[in-house]
Amino acid sequence: MAESARTVLATLAVAGAAAGMLGWGTGGGRVFTSEMARRLDIAAAPRLLPDVILHDQSGAMTRLSDYRGRPVVMEFVYATCPDICLTLGTAFEQLDAALPEGAALLSVSFDPADTPEQLGWFADRHGARAPRWRVAGIADADGRAALLARAEVVVIPDGLGGYVHNAGLYLVDSAGRLVAVFGPEDAAAVLAAIAADAG
């Protein structure tokens, strides 16, 4: 009897610790993937993005900090992307049509192999016109890596010469802080967030 009582007590203690550990590890049962964790973390604690130099489709150079004072919606793409970037592109086209004058769109290429010419093709395909909607690469490898790391963009080779990446719509506020990441098709949520911020 004493033995089984010990078993029950010890098992209950372990079960309590295990529930605590698993609860902590999943944000109370809400966060099972790093994508969910990233979105919650960023929404809870907006983060300043590194001030990288962007080379856009028209050959012009801009700093990310030049966008201070107005909201920017960013996406991370590569110019020859066949699938998810098209979904993103469609969302960006909707945003281009619906966003207020002051807001900007920025498609950032994470592929160092993207030439200005390729960025131009990407821009043409989606009707992107600078300066409202820039399609830009980052020449500086360290800056590019720092921006991707800060936004927690994970890019992996797809084995077919392309890339797979955790796509999303990134809302940067007028203070230059990344404040939210939305799903790649969730243009409506971006519009709502910008309207709420302006109002």
Binding site: T7, T11, V14, A18
Partner: peptide, 21 residues
Amino acid sequence: WTAAPSLLAGAATLGFWLIPR
């Protein structure tokens, strides 16, 4: 008497590291 709590602790730890996050 240690069998059940040990196995539970091991399974929970294993489960934790299998969470995709």
